[in-house]
Measured scan of single mutants.
Amino acid sequence: EEDDHMEFCRVCKDGGELLCCDACPSSYHLHCLNPPLPEIPNGEWLCPRCTCP
């Protein structure tokens, strides 16, 4: 299965362990989110761009 998510964080543009949005190709480091997440959430996760009205 091919993964179309970005291979770098949308905020800092660095690679590493990234959290991928379930609705778009964006990826983020947990510490780059505002507010930062302490751990990878269970289940579906939507990035700030997808949850913003």
Rank of each mutant, 00 (worst) to 15 (best):
D3F: 15
C21D: 01
P35I: 07
G16T: 11
T51F: 07
N42S: 13
L19V: 10
P41Q: 10
D22A: 13
S26K: 09
E7S: 06
V11F: 08
N34K: 13
C50T: 01
C20W: 10
L30A: 13
H5Y: 09
P25Y: 12
C9A: 01
W45Y: 05
C50E: 05
L46R: 10
C47A: 03
E7A: 10
C12L: 00
P36R: 10
G16R: 03
L33P: 03
N34A: 11
R10G: 10
P36C: 09
C24I: 00
R49A: 11
L33H: 01
S26L: 11
H5T: 09
D4G: 04
C24M: 01
L19M: 13
Y28Q: 03
E44W: 04
G15C: 03
E44Y: 06
C9R: 02
G15S: 11
C50S: 01
P36K: 14
C9V: 00
C20K: 11
I40G: 09
H5F: 13
L37E: 10
E44M: 05
K13S: 05
Y28K: 03
L30V: 12
L19Y: 14
E2R: 10
C52P: 14
P53W: 15
P35D: 05
C12H: 01
E7N: 09
I40V: 10
I40H: 07
L33F: 06
F8M: 08
E39T: 06
D14N: 09
E44T: 12
P48R: 07
E39Y: 04
G16P: 01
C24W: 00
D14H: 10
L37N: 06
C52A: 13
H5R: 09
D22E: 13
P41E: 13
C32L: 01
G16K: 03
D4S: 09
R10E: 10
R49C: 12
C32K: 02
P35L: 04
C20S: 11
E1D: 03
C20I: 13
S26I: 09
C32H: 04
W45A: 03
E17L: 05
G15I: 08
D3M: 15
P38A: 15
S26R: 08
H29Y: 02
C47L: 01
H5Q: 10
H31D: 13
G16M: 05
H29E: 01
P38W: 11
D22H: 11
M6L: 08
C12N: 01
P38K: 15
F8K: 04
G43W: 05
N34H: 05
D14I: 03
P36Q: 14
D3R: 14
G16W: 00
E7C: 14
G16H: 06
R10P: 04
Y28E: 01
E7W: 05
P35A: 05
E39M: 08
L30H: 12
Y28W: 06
L18Y: 15
P35Q: 08
N34I: 08
P48S: 11
C32T: 02
A23L: 13
Y28M: 05
C21V: 00
E7T: 02
A23I: 03
H31K: 10
S26Q: 04
C9S: 01
S27F: 15
V11N: 08
G43C: 08
R10A: 06
L37H: 15
C12F: 01
L37M: 05
C21P: 03
E1A: 03
C50I: 01
L37G: 06
S27W: 07
P36G: 07
L33T: 06
N42P: 15
D3H: 11
C12G: 02
T51I: 14
V11Q: 11
E44P: 09
G15Y: 03
I40E: 08
E2L: 10
E39D: 06
F8A: 11
L33I: 15
P35N: 07
P38E: 02
L46M: 06
C12D: 02
D14A: 14
E17F: 05
G15E: 06
E44I: 07
S27M: 10
E17M: 08
P41T: 11
R49K: 14
P41I: 07
E39N: 14
V11A: 05
H31S: 09
I40K: 08
D22G: 13
T51E: 10
C9I: 00
L30K: 10
H29Q: 01
S27I: 04
C9L: 01
C50H: 11
S27V: 14
L18T: 09
A23F: 01
C32R: 00
L19N: 02
C20A: 13
D4W: 11
N34M: 06
H31A: 09
